[in-house]
Computed example of a mutant assay.
Amino acid sequence: MSTRTDTTTTAGSWRLGDLTVNRIGFGAMRLTGTAPFDHGVPRDREQSISVLRRAVELGVNHIDTAAFYFSATRSANELINRALAPYPEDLVIATKVWPGRDPSGAWWWAAPEQLRGQVEENLRQLGRDHLDLVNLRVPPSRQAESISEHFGALAELRDAGLIRHLGISNVTARQLTEARAIAPVVCVQNPYGIGATSEDRALLERCGELGLAFVPFFAIAGPGREAGPASDDSEEVRAVARAHGASLAQVRLAWTLQQGPHVLAIPGTGDPDHLAQNMAAGALRLSKEELARLTAPQPTDA
């Protein structure tokens, strides 16, 4: 019997192709440890499993993961499998390929013909016969180049039934146009948050015009990226947080969600208290004035 309390539904829902998800999802990267990609302190296994189960109870039906989300003793995909299989029918699990890591943790980037192996690695770890959504994650060094060979290889795997929907990640507007000429794209997953550039905003708006989901990552962490949010957040963010009795992370998430109905959030955490705060951010409504203050260029301390 379901024990969902659906706190995420206050933020509404959107579509990933023919799949409907609540706009507040869950990012799995931080389940594996305090330093997700090295030999830092691992998360308590049972706590990570309980956080995943609690996220689903709170209405999360969109989880973002990757086979390369692992630390010395933890694998995000395997934690998801352990916590949630057999999976709820409405749960959408999105993963990403092109980056990879060997068993020692060293990074590598796949050639087009190696993408099938990366897809099958996710299938094995998650215990699935197909993947709901696979994002092609583009290397920073390739943002001025064509992605047609890699995206075409994923399109073939979609046609073979291994993948249901395709997305692209860390891309430019030109690469979005290129991908859509090859196969349907259901989402763009790019870094985005307070302080985003006009170019970033233009891509977000273009996705809205096309009816595509825009899925920001590092919406809370910002420039801190994998290391997490900086402790010296701007006074503008702090002032809005004080006015609402909210945390800085909640303000950043609320701002993100109010960028458009097609914008999804995938905050990640291994902490149950932070999970509850993230889910509650969907009910936080910022005024037009507050949105404008936070959207303006953010001052930096000297």
Results as ranks from 00 to 15, higher is better:
V56C: 06
L31I: 09
L275T: 12
Q143M: 09
G27M: 07
L126A: 06
I182C: 06
D90A: 05
D38A: 14
L291V: 05
A72Q: 14
R128K: 14
A302N: 15
G224S: 03
N22D: 13
M1L: 12
G27I: 05
R201G: 00
G282L: 02
I80G: 06
P86D: 02
G100W: 04
A66F: 00
E89I: 04
P297H: 10
A221I: 07
I220D: 10
P223K: 11
L91H: 07
A254I: 00
G195A: 09
G245I: 03
S104W: 07
Q125A: 15
I220P: 09
D90T: 07
R238D: 10
V60A: 11
P42N: 10
W255P: 03
A144G: 15
G195L: 05
S75P: 00
E149Q: 13
R180A: 13
I220L: 13
D232P: 03
L115S: 14
L264A: 09
V185Q: 08
Q277N: 12
W14Y: 13
R74A: 14
R164E: 14
V237E: 04
M1G: 15
L210G: 12
R164A: 10
R285P: 00
T295Y: 02
A181N: 12
P216V: 06
V171G: 00
G268M: 03
A106K: 14
R225L: 11
Q118C: 12
A302K: 13
P267Y: 08
R124K: 12
E121I: 09
L133I: 14
L162I: 06
A213W: 10
G270T: 09
G270A: 15
C207T: 11
V138A: 01
L133V: 14
H274I: 00
R124I: 12
S234V: 11
V21F: 06
R116E: 15
Q125W: 01
V251E: 02
H165Y: 11
L284W: 01
R54P: 08
L115E: 09
L203T: 01
A28P: 01
L19I: 07
G25M: 08
L91T: 02
S247W: 02
A11G: 08
Q259P: 02
W107T: 08
V97T: 13
T73P: 11
R293C: 02
G167T: 10
A283P: 03
D233M: 14
D233R: 15
A302D: 15
D6G: 06
G268T: 07
A302I: 13
P297C: 07
A83V: 07
